[in-house]
């Protein structure tokens, strides 16, 4: 799924790296616990989270993620957006809750990483 398709499904606002909206996302992770996110490598993934602090962006950088979506109208700080820009990570914000946002993406074909 392309990031721009996710943006449409989630009715999300793009906060940085709009130039990368055409990139593909192959898996997703909905989580507020960064160590759980770090436990399993995902290929070109998107992270959906309600947690707002710079460690969210650093986690995404470490995992080579291409997009982070903040749910429940959470707004990242300018410092976080700057970190994301350095790595070209698209940051979006949606009013939807985590469960609904994940459900919308899943039912549209973006399945998560299968547990091994």
């Amino acid at each position: 799924m392309k990031i721009c398709a996710m943006q449409e499904l989630l009715e999300a606002r793009v906060l940085c790296c709009e130039e990368n909206l055409g990139k593909h996302v192959y898996s997703a992770c909905g989580c507020d616990l960064m160590s759980d996110v770090l436990a399993y490598v995902k290929d070109q993934a998107v992270l959906l989270t309600g947690l707002v602090n710079p460690q969210v962006i650093r986690t995404a950088v470490m995992m080579d993620m291409v997009c982070v979506v903040f749910v429940r109208s959470k707004v990242p700080t300018e410092e976080m957006l700057e970190l994301a820009r350095e790595s070209g990570i698209v940051i979006m914000a949606t009013d939807k809750r985590l469960y609904e946002a994940c459900g919308l993406l899943y039912s549209s074909g973006l399945v998560g990483n299968k547990t091994k």
Binding site: L33, S35, A39, L51, N53, Q55, T59
Partner: peptide, 15 residues
């Protein structure tokens, strides 16, 4: 509350 401290750090480092 900041997203860490769940007892996954050392296991992840080993992983």
């Amino acid at each position: 509350s900041l997203g860490f401290g769940a007892g996954m750090g050392l296991p992840n480092m080993k992983r």
